[in-house]
Each structure stands twice: as C-alpha cells, then as structure tokens.
Amino acid sequence: MVRESFQEQLNQLRDNILRMGNLVERAIELAITSLKKHDVDLAEKVVMDDEKIDDLEQTIEKQCLTLLALQQPMARDLRFISTALKIDTDLERMGDYACNIAKIVLTLGNEPFIKPLVDLPRMAETAQEMVRDNLKAYVNRDKELAIKAAEKDHAIDNLYNQIFRELLVLMTNNPRNIRQATYLLLVARHLERIGDHATNFSEWIIYMITGELVELNE
C-alpha cells in the first residue's frame, strides 16, 4: 500500500469522529435522563463534558486543515476530509443542544413537572438512534443506513409538533404553567434541532460515499 502514513492519519481522523459521535450520543442520553430524574449532578456533568466535545471539534478541524494543506487529497480522500470538517460542526452543535437541555435541568431544579414526560424522552431516544446509525453508516460506508437514519427525523418532527400543541394547551389553561412549559418547549426545540443536524450528518455520509450532495427530508 502506497501512502501508508497518510492512510494512518485518515484513520486517526475517523477515530476522532467516532469518539466525538459517541460523546454526543451519550450527552443527549444523560441530558434527558437528568431531566427525567431532576438530577442536578448529572446535568452538571453533561455541561462539564461538553468541553471534551468542543476540544475534539478543534482537534478534528486542525487535523483536516493540516491534511488538506500538506497532502493535497483528491477524490475519495478529499470527500472523506471535507465530510469530517462538516460533520464535526454538526456534532459540535448537537453537543451544545444537549448541554442547553442540561442547563434547563439546572434551572428547573426539583420543581415537579406539570405533566408526565413521555414524548420528550422518546424524541431524545430517536435522536440518539439517528446519531448511532449515522456513526455505523459512516464507518461501514453504508448509504442505505444513512438514509434510514435521516428518515427518523420525521418522527422527531411529529413529536415536536405534538409537544408544542400539548404545552400550548397547558399554558392557556393555567398561566402558572407558562414558565416551566416554556422551558420544556425549549427542550423539545433543542431535540428537534439535534434531529436536523443528524440529518445533515446523513447527507454528508452520502456525499462521502457517492460524491453527490443530496438534500434529505426536504
């Protein structure tokens, strides 16, 4: 194999993307668990751990820019590196949204919920699945799996609309619900945005494999 050290650097880049993806998936899971359980300690851990995600983002960016400058990558290598640069940003944003959810947990403290949380954990679970499937699709260069991952965004959008209507009713019925309902709506909104970034992730995987820029879930 020619260009062994270059291939080795590409492998390191891939491993960092996987590491970052796993951290993001975990952050979403812990953020929603801390919300369900009113667990302030756990929420604080999510906020702290976001730094690791941010650090990885910078590491990956530097790796990509160095590879572009020094190796003049072409074709699949070029697509691989530009994909890493793009999903790096998407993953970082997803991490930020998880962190925002954790901060809302810190704000709400022990305040009892105005309604049982059912759909929010469902949204989070689906978002996690999207990230997981994408990571698998990314490593295995599996286009079909990336498309399937993106399709799950519809479920997230539907849940978001449902939650929106539900919370609106609660607010209309009792103005004292407004504060918490607004926070819960923000949580839903953050999860919905995570779904959008996960869809971008799928699109970049498809670009990496085929060279075609596609728009999924239009």
Binding site: V2, R3, F6, M74, A75, R76, L78, R79, G211
Partner: peptide
C-alpha cells in the same frame, strides 16, 4: 471537477489519490 472529486472508475481513484500499485 468530477475526475478529481468523484471519479467513477476505481483505477482513476487509486491513481489520483496516490494509492497506485
């Protein structure tokens, strides 16, 4: 642009990415 970003043939890909031979 196509040849250097997304060539169709594996041999082209191998050559321009320097993985020839």
């Amino acid at each position: 642009n196509t040849i250097f970003t997304a060539p169709r043939d594996k041999r082209t890909e191998d050559y321009i990415t320097g993985r020839f031979g």
